[in-house]
Design a protein around this nucleic acid. Structure first.
Lengths: 135, 135
DNA sequence: TGCGTTACGCACCTGTTGGTAAGTATGAAC
DNA sequence: GTTCATACTTACCAACAGGTGCGTAACGCA
């Protein structure tokens, strides 16, 4: 009665088991690199490994591999390897991954819209801290 | 012409300086604890320190303090200390923080709606891996 | 006088994350 | 037969995140 389909869109109290699950999922996808990879794949579908590494600036090969495996096992991206030489592997978002990308789109827009406020706040906070330490 | 106000809602190419800034902001807010704190404060405004620690299950005192400081310096929460005994400190989301909470709401809903698919995908992936290792 | 409460700060230590660098498999080209 | 490219995997190591425990300030109460 409580765990199966209830597709209620309201954000009400849901039972703690599911809540914990959701938290775990959030914790798994909410890291810097994962988000950037999803965004890169959202903009450039069917990207290859080295392309991704170039797009997600600063990521190391190892972390990219790890993140891609994680995303794959979560069902967010699809990995397609072609038995050619040199080998070719293409990654693309699954429909599930696409839907997550769209959900995150709001956050990207938020960041784009509010970065100036954040910068200002950071500066103000640093100034206040300096003042406090002086005294 | 390019960096100031252009409030274009389209998701077009924006100049790399801002893009990097946005990435940095995303990297700063996109971690497990920060998100959970924002959600807790979204649901229970004016929460106190120990209340938050109880709500965000599993967080340590140190990390909660650190995260709150970070959120405060980013201008996402407001800290109000009352000079009483025992001391009382209340935290609430600023309008900026509220807007971020709303932007993230989509992700929460997404997670709530799709956790079953993710679980299924994880299980399938593990099974496939087992199969591979057996051979 | 000593205990309790709240909201921390600080020091220490460990576990995980992440970077670097090297090795591997494949087949085609030279 | 050596080289080259791709897409990894593995080993090693450093850095940092995070947990634990102790200290603190302020006052109220017994």
């Amino acid at each position: 009665m409580n765990n199966a389909a209830g597709d209620s869109p309201e954000w009400s109290e849901l039972d703690p088991k599911i809540s914990a699950l959701v938290r775990e999922i959030i914790a798994r996808i909410a890291d810097k690199w994962t988000l950037l990879i999803i965004e890169a794949l959202h903009e450039y579908p069917d990207a290859r490994f080295n392309q991704l590494q170039r797009m997600v600036e600063g990521i190391s090969q190892k972390v990219l591999t790890q993140s891609l495996r994680q995303l794959e096992s979560d069902g967010l991206i699809q990995r397609t390897a072609y038995a050619e030489t040199p080998p070719r592997v293409e990654y693309k978002l699954t429909p599930l991954g696409e839907s997550l990308g769209e959900a995150f789109c709001g956050v990207w827009i938020w960041a784009e819209r509010h970065w100036e406020e954040i910068e200002a706040s950071l500066a103000a906070f640093a100034a206040k801290k300096m003042l406090k330490e002086k005294s």
